[in-house]
């Protein structure tokens, strides 16, 4: 940094890379990205076949439903709320899909019913949270029990899905150049991420989500549509949970009341590891997707190793969540 007086125009690429300082907004997401890349590198060195691109694609295939779930959760957490009901809503969605198909509904109608039910439940919880000023934790805890209970009301046993359309979608693979493949569920998940990013950053609704997370009372005094937005994020989360339930039923081809037990916690963990502040106002939906991929990579690690108990997944996830929350705390404290 001495004699060179370079104008911004003739900076070399290296100068620009070296001079790049990410805004504090993107830092947590970059940390997650680095973690993901690092874990993959480590896996590639350690295990044969780990560094194959198909392993990455399979991560998406196996976790498409969790990505969609985390997208909805990101909206809620950005406002400073939480949605504990999503795991149960996934189970309920598989039950509704399986039972309506069994009853002979056309697949499109079954899917519509699932999405409608999830959105309705989310909206209901949002209304309770906003208009009765109930803590999101409590309201969605009630929603969690309600949805799980409704599953048993439909059937205590697992219902297999035998519909041709569902079979066709589940079996379909898009072949990519090089012999790699992805499934339609991956496209749905990626579309959800892209749409969510657009809504969060390019619409008034999305910016209001961030504003509420920053300070709800300020957002109200600024004349923003707080009520509509708060109810909206729970409706979106409910919709995403229902959509994730559809993807999950394509994955398992069955409806069962014990599906997706504790999956809401996986979604929350993914959002937190993805760099979203639990107190709201800060975070990116892409980060949540990366969070899901990190969780998936841990599982891939364990399956490649073969000697590790699958409980290591939980231990690593627990440690990561803890580390990320502490890092966030340190980073936000540094600011005035």
């Amino acid at each position: 940094m001495t004699a060179t007086t370079a104008t911004p125009g003739d900076l070399s690429v290296w100068d620009r890379v070296r001079g790049y300082s990410p805004s504090s907004r993107h830092l947590p997401v970059l940390a997650t990205l680095a973690l993901f890349v690092g874990m993959f590198g480590a896996g590639g060195i350690r295990y044969e076949g780990f560094a194959d691109p198909q392993v990455v694609l399979t991560l998406f295939v196996d976790n498409a439903f969790l990505i969609v779930l985390a997208v909805g959760m990101t909206f809620v957490i950005l406002t400073g709320g939480i949605d504990l009901s999503v795991g149960s809503v996934v189970a309920l969605s598989t039950m509704i899909a399986a039972s309506t198909l069994e009853a002979g509904w056309p697949p499109a109608a079954a899917m519509a019913a699932v999405l409608l039910a999830g959105t309705a439940l989310g909206t209901l919880m949002g209304l309770v949270i906003h208009y009765f000023d109930i803590q999101p934790f409590i309201a969605t805890l009630a929603g969690m029990f309600l949805a799980r209970g409704l599953c048993y009301l439909i059937s205590v046993d697992s219902i297999p899905i035998r519909d041709d359309t569902f079979f066709a979608i589940a079996a379909h693979q898009f072949t990519l150049p090089g012999g790699y493949f992805i499934t339609p569920t991956v496209l749905v998940a990626l579309a959800a991420v892209a749409l969510a990013a657009y809504v969060l950053h390019r619409t008034r609704f999305g910016r209001t989500v961030y504003a509420i997370g920053g300070s709800e009372s300020s957002a109200m005094l600024m004349g923003l549509r707080v009520a509509r937005t708060k109810v909206g994020v729970y409706a979106i989360s409910g919709f995403c949970a229902a959509l994730a339930g559809l993807l999950f039923s394509l994955y398992t081809l069955s409806g069962y009341s014990l599906h997706a037990l504790g999956m809401e916690l996986d979604a929350i963990a993914a959002v937190v590891i993805g760099g979203t502040l639990l107190t709201g106002g800060r975070g990116l939906v892409v980060g949540s997707m990366l969070g899901v991929l990190v969780l998936g990579t841990i599982q891939t690690f364990i399956s490649f190793d073969g000697t590790l108990s699958s409980w290591w997944t939980k231990i690593v996830i627990g440690s990561l969540v803890l580390v990320f929350v502490v890092i966030q705390r340190v980073m936000t404290r540094r600011q005035p």
Partner: peptide, 12 residues
């Protein structure tokens, strides 16, 4: 209105 306490959102 500009209120006594700053009523803006710090994260944006």
């Amino acid at each position: 209105t500009v209120y006594q306490e700053v009523n803006l959102v710090p994260n944006l």
